[in-house]
Amino acid sequence: MQVPAKFEYERADSVPHALQLLERYGPEARIVAGGHSLIPMMKLRLAQPEALIDINGLASELGRIAVEGDELAIGALVRHAELLDDVTATDLFPIFRDAERVIADPIVRHRGTVGGSLCQGDPSEDLSAVFAALRATAVIQGPGGTRTVPVRQFHQGPYETAVEPNELLIQLRVPITPGTGSAYEKVERRVGDWPVAAAGAVITVSDGVIAQAGIGLTAVGAEHFCAPEAEQHLIGRAPGEEVFAEAGRIAAEHCEPHSDQRGPADYKRHLAAELTRRALARANRNVPGSATV
């Protein structure tokens, strides 16, 4: 029987209250929402926080998905299942539908949250690559107010993020650009597992050429979950199979996969190229008004 070590438990009734509790308990306190990364780690005693601050009651502040101007705002407490079910979000960005359908399983997705996934900072976590591909911005609140950090600077290493011990990730903001398509491709050993490798692609096509490109890579040691060299190759070129295949090759060249129980490094590198190619091709097909549909 797995039992977490003892901890203090506090329930936040507002974001300012959560921040006060973080100040009171200090750096050994942890925020808990869905708990589907943290609680298993606590049961294995890999994590032994002195206090848990439960933010599950903050859905009215942190649980909304809404279009605000030219951005889609996603609250940190939005559950995976809620993002998957939100037609506005998944129509604007099919990459969310692709990724959320293969994150864990439907029951886990009822609890796990978008913000929790990003803050866990697991190198194999799908949404980190998705938001990196989308060039989203993280909104972080602390005692001095809110600040924003590009998601491409949010992850500072495995399980390390830009969120300070006295701060709370409250929202992700995704820029909405007309003419944009997106997709996510993942290979897993069995349904619901972490990826062997995965790739997300976001492209904006304007006047027949790629005006903007985002590529996110999961579980292959890509710095900040993205592939800037491959993105650069796409800019200004007409979308097409050759161009996408070359971008895949470049993405694979610049990542650093490691061999582990999910597969050898050379296989993961092969997947990085192939999944990038496939994600780009599908992203291109779902660009609104795309002639190749």
Partner: peptide, 27 residues
């Protein structure tokens, strides 16, 4: 399994199925 994989502990919390081995009673 005690690791939120097998789902035999699934119950409904406010009408939504959850794996009760990975939810604290206080929640």
């Amino acid at each position: 399994c005690d690791t939120s994989n097998c789902g035999v502990c699934t119950v409904q919390l406010d009408g939504v199925p959850v794996k009760s081995c990975t939810v604290l009673a206080v929640m």
